[in-house]
Design a binder for these strands. Structure first.
Lengths: 271, 271
DNA sequence: GATTCAATCTGTGTATACATTGATTGAACT
DNA sequence: AGTTCAATCAATGTATACACAGATTGAATC
């Protein structure tokens, strides 16, 4: 039988990533222990792991809340993601098992046909991307790097619910992935890193564009959940002069508002 | 009053980083609770945080042990560190507060005089490097990236005890740091990243060289602590063909043996 | 009627008792 | 003498009880 703390962690994490538990939701030990049918001890352990993942954070020194997600968070996360995935792609290109990535080439070339099928969830496509990630993880053979990548992917999974990828974007992304895999098969370290950078740049642009259109559509639903002042006093410095060289993955200044699922506006405690 | 779990975590982490608790040491809850004078509950919380940090890991599904440190770990950690610090330096160059890094320029130029003093611990030098790290963290303004960097620094602190920096290397490192700071002051994103890569490459080479000489001197002391088979079945793939382009931060294949402080060979349980 | 102080109460932090699982040791049988 | 099975033991996993701190609500006073 699995441990109660593991089950609780998996369930809470799933509920946070699926936006069933929205940002700002209070994670009270007693309430969770009764809801999950276990005692407070394993609940505490699960909550500690969520805090370590960055999915929950202390709320004013008393109690935990689900961490917020903002447009700024997306940009920040992509700055970290870019660093990690460029390095991972470069290392994969130098240490890969060629057969594995040749198979991925074949699969990625079939994506247009795969997306032509009537599966609205595009599950097959996302499974293929997950297999690509797994292949890269196995190729880099670096527990530290893979661990950092997994930490990023947790937050990516949560942010994915913010923007809805359109089919055209998925086709583009598949071609970008294919170029990365080509570079890895060829053992071209530089191209693998650069193609990864291109892919992430376009992916971020698509995500931000999707976010901008959605938040513009439902501007009133925001302020009901957000706190007036941001928890982290980040945006103090006015974005100093940025030379037009190899610029980091930044975009034009976006709204600092937190984002919640616009459709299902559940009863979030007033905190 | 501070929480018992926080005190326990800080103390255990300190003891692991200082090699007072060597790799492979069993972290038993009852023994720690009696040694630290607290109950098992806060001890469990502290141990969970150590596992999240990568300083402890499950031992065969029952009990926790302090994680091992090997030469391979050093190389792997630097692969992650390179990705993170290059990105951090690039972002710092585009968002920095110029005054802060001008002050660091002045301090770094005084390092030769600072190292000429008779302080054997070089504490003033390491404090300056810590201030540099803090300035970069503040400049990048990215909680995700800073969090990942802090995770790396924990392991770096532990590995620092493996190799002893000689004064000549410290002087070089200070000049390399100064170049990075110059680039940040100038807002030169590309130079900041490249100078960081240079610094880390030379730092890794120095560390590996120091390790090689030390492990060669005391080859017999190794096998008494190491387990015969490595915990992670990593080194299966025979290091595929690596084109001579922008190579990742790898070195010639080093010994896969775990490393322990050669001098103080304490009573490590036989596990 | 508003403000302040106190009491209660809710929720986290800690301790301890109980349960369960895996290991180890001893004896018995082959 | 070796092997196997069983029993005991030790350590983790879980539950619960207790302590304490902060917040909220009520009443009393100005």
């Amino acid at each position: 039988m699995a441990r109660a703390s593991d089950s609780a962690y998996a369930r809470l994490r799933s509920e946070i990533l699926s936006w069933h538990l929205e940002p700002g939701t209070v994670l009270a030990e007693v309430e969770l222990s009764s809801r999950l049918g276990i005692s407070r001890t394993p609940v505490r352990e699960a909550l500690a792991r969520l805090v370590a993942d960055g999915l929950a954070e202390p709320q004013g020194g008393r109690g935990l809340v689900v961490t917020a997600v903002s447009v700024e968070n997306v940009t920040e996360l992509f700055e970290l993601r870019q660093a990690l995935e460029q390095q991972a792609a470069a290392l994969a290109a130098s240490r890969r098992d060629v057969a594995v990535f040749r198979a991925l080439q074949d699969e990625l070339r079939e994506v247009p046909a795969l997306l032509a099928t009537a599966d609205p969830s595009k599950q097959a496509y996302y499974d293929l991307v997950a297999r690509f990630d797994d292949a890269v993880d196995a190729a880099v053979q670096n527990p530290f790097l893979v661990g950092a990548l997994n930490g990023v992917r947790i937050h990516l999974a949560r942010m994915r619910r913010l923007s809805h990828d359109n089919p055209a974007r998925l086709l583009e992304a598949a071609r970008e992935h294919l170029l990365i895999v080509d570079a890895i098969v060829d053992g071209d370290v530089r191209l693998a890193a650069d193609a990864t950078r291109v892919h992430l740049y376009r992916s971020l642009q698509s995500t931000l564009g999707s976010l901008r259109s959605e938040t513009t559509l439902t501007p009133a639903a925001q302020s009901s959940v957000d706190e007036p002042a941001a928890a982290q006093p980040a945006a103090a410095q006015p974005a100093a002069a940025e030379p037009a060289t190899a610029e980091p993955a930044t975009a034009e200044p976006a709204t600092a508002q937190s984002i919640t699922e616009s459709a299902e506006q559940k009863d979030v405690p007033a905190r």
